[in-house]
Design a protein around this nucleic acid. Sequence first.
DNA 1: CATACTATATCCGTAACGGACATAGCTGTC
DNA 2: GACAGCTATGTCCGTTACGGATATAGTATG
Lengths: 129, 129
Amino acid sequence: MSVTDIVWRMTTTNSNPPLTPAVFHILLSLSSGERHGYGIMKQVEVDSQGKVNMGAGTLYGSLKRMLDAGLVKESDKRVDPEMDDERRIYYRITGVGKKALAAELERYRHIVGVAKKLRLFPETFAYDV
Amino acid sequence: MSVTDIVWRMTTTNSNPPLTPAVFHILLSLSSGERHGYGIMKQVEVDSQGKVNMGAGTLYGSLKRMLDAGLVKESDKRVDPEMDDERRIYYRITGVGKKALAAELERYRHIVGVAKKLRLFPETFAYDV
DNA sequence: CATACTATATCCGTAACGGACATAGCTGTC
DNA sequence: GACAGCTATGTCCGTTACGGATATAGTATG
């Protein structure tokens, strides 16, 4: 099932199948502001504590699919004319993108809850709440 | 990067790249007990609130890779001879599998934390803690 | 007696991924 | 000033992962 299929299903059947990790991380990185490709890569690295290193192929391939699916849009934002890096294309998350991200985050939170019930995390102390 | 590569990297360099969603969910389902293929599928459905429907190809393909990588083992457990469904093969999680699962769960928990800081979850109430 | 569910497993087309490569400007340093 | 390293975009292509169809067969329900 492609990303486009997932969004189609989301908007028509109200069911939310999981996003791919790449798509998820791109959406997460864009939820703290508009970013260009390279900026997304760096932010994903930060958000994941360096654990996810997204290759250029994954990034630009995913962005293309996400544009088709309406999860992100190209922003009108352009850089200050002085520092003219005109190649930069900024992306921003759309309403559909926010909805998809929220559903996926809920899935993450639920799984963490399941894992806690199974005592798969080392015990936390009272002051650790 | 294959699952085997990920485990090799884990055990040699102490770095933990993400698991694929399928591998992760299989490990999670096995952390609450030994299960056979079909049982894994059903448990994944439960753990994910029906959001992840794992195809047979994904399941048995992933299990094969996970056996190679040492994340799971075939169990000696066999069914009561009376109800002889002898085809059943039970799987259990190994030490390496537990370590991989723990690292991945930590990644999930961290991401949920990041999302909370970004206020991407609807506000929770005091009694909701 | 047909349908549905349990159960294992393979096959194959599609989707996703990652790294190499191409290109190019900018910065710092030896 | 040459050279390394970083920013920046993007394509290409081989590998990996995934999902559904299919095959097979037993059990249970109506």
